[in-house]
Amino acid sequence: MPFKISGFLADPFAISTLSFGVITWIVAIAGAASSDQSKFPRFTWWGLVYQILLIIAILFLYLFNIIELYKFTLVGLLSIAFVYTSNSTNNLIYNSTSSANLCCAAGCMLLAMLNLTLIIYFGGHPESPTNQFIDSFSLKPSHHNHLDDKNFNAHNLDDDNEEEFKRYANPSQDAGHFQDNNLRQSQLTTNNKSSNTPYMSSSQLNGLENFSSSDINNRDLTSNQKRSTIYNNEQADSQPVMNFRYKAKALYSYDANPDDINEISFVKDEILEVDDIDGKWWQAKKANGQIGICPSNYVKLLD
């Protein structure tokens, strides 16, 4: 939050409104100071102090270039100031004939007009006609570079996704080192498609999306070969033991894609052991020991 006087000097609306506010406040405070205090409304003093503190606060927000972050707060504070100044104007005009009181009333009336103008501006949408007209005179970009901040955040998010992919693609490698750029591009494309389609094809999933991190670490994901879903006795001894925490009942029959050895077929009402149930394809085990993936919308978890 650096201090930049250009944030204030580059905005003609800020210069004109705050300068007008200081001048009218001086007029009001001068009239209040020269008035007969026995007949002067006491709450007007508090209203004038509140008004100058609010003007100073707005000035600092412009100087630190964070006015956009506090617009809604300023609308509430300016509404209170508008009530103070308009009420003081009413009491000073209709309950006194003193010239000093009338001078203070004139200053309060102008301050009320200023507060109303600022309420309309700060409470308006940046794309409203009034705000666009006012901001057209400004010498700095609108929204105070918030769009740049969004682009910066989006860039950081892209970097985070890339780093996450790096860890997923090959956990043994440090960030920034890849052996297979084609794998990276295909994986990113698959991730983008997953948010737009109800279920990805099994050939895109490769049976790996629902594995836990421990399973991923035990597999070489850079290999183009798919694992077998059925283990013989010799292979079972060398494969890690997989625990299936849930049971599911098949709602419909499903025929596995013959081009994808990771899928398993099952019939309606068949009971399966399942795990990694966060994704659209679940890891499943049949009663005969066959392990593979199944579409989650074809099965229902049992209590």
Rank of each mutant, 00 (worst) to 15 (best):
S223D: 13
F152R: 13
Y254V: 03
Y252F: 14
N153K: 11
E234G: 01
I5M: 15
T97Q: 03
L139E: 12
L188G: 05
N262E: 10
P12L: 13
C103K: 13
D276P: 00
L251S: 08
V83G: 06
R184F: 12
L251A: 02
S195C: 12
D36I: 02
D278L: 05
E270Q: 09
K226N: 12
K226C: 07
D159V: 10
S195W: 07
C104H: 03
Y121W: 11
V299W: 07
N196P: 00
N233C: 06
S128A: 13
K286H: 08
P126G: 09
P12V: 08
A169S: 09
E270I: 01
N233H: 07
S296P: 08
F122L: 00
F133N: 04
R167L: 13
F40C: 01
N243H: 02
L111K: 12
D158P: 00
L53A: 11
S203G: 05
R184S: 12
H125K: 03
S142L: 12
N182E: 15
L54K: 01
P141Q: 04
M113G: 12
I29M: 13
S194R: 04
F165Y: 04
A284Q: 02
N262T: 11
S38F: 00
K226R: 14
F266P: 03
Y298S: 08
N161A: 09
D159K: 06
L116V: 09
V267F: 09
G7L: 12
C294R: 04
Y252M: 07
K280L: 07
N156Y: 15
L77K: 00
N217S: 09
D255A: 12
M200C: 11
T197A: 12
I277Q: 02
P129Q: 14
K193R: 10
K249D: 03
R219F: 09
I216W: 04
Y252S: 04
T117G: 05
G107Q: 14
A256H: 01
F266E: 07
G279N: 15
C103Q: 14
E162G: 05
T130F: 15
S142P: 00
K268Q: 15
D174S: 07
P258F: 14
L69Y: 15
L116W: 13
I277F: 12
P41V: 03
S38W: 00
T44I: 15
M109I: 15
